[in-house]
Amino acid sequence: MEDLKYELKRQIIEELKLEDIKPEDIQDDAPLIGDGLGLDSIDALELVVLLEKYHGVKIMDEEIGKKVLTSINTMADFIVEEKAKAT
């Protein structure tokens, strides 16, 4: 799980082109959108793409998206849950 969270942070920094931020700077439970990391609605769409592209999991609607994209923790939990469903 810790590896997954670190990987997510690394991918987010790379895909969203967050300069001057290292994975260590992102707290697992810190808000991603709005407060905390300060991402916006376009970034939210990019996170949806990231989850599908790198982890093979799809967010099916906006309501689910809002919950899943809250923090690194919620994103990692979602990946693990979805992958468990698939197997």
Binding site: E46, V48, V49
Partner: peptide, 10 residues
């Protein structure tokens, strides 16, 4: 055909 990143379009 897979998921498409929107940023450069916007």
């Amino acid at each position: 055909g897979g998921p498409l990143s929107p940023t450069s379009f916007i």
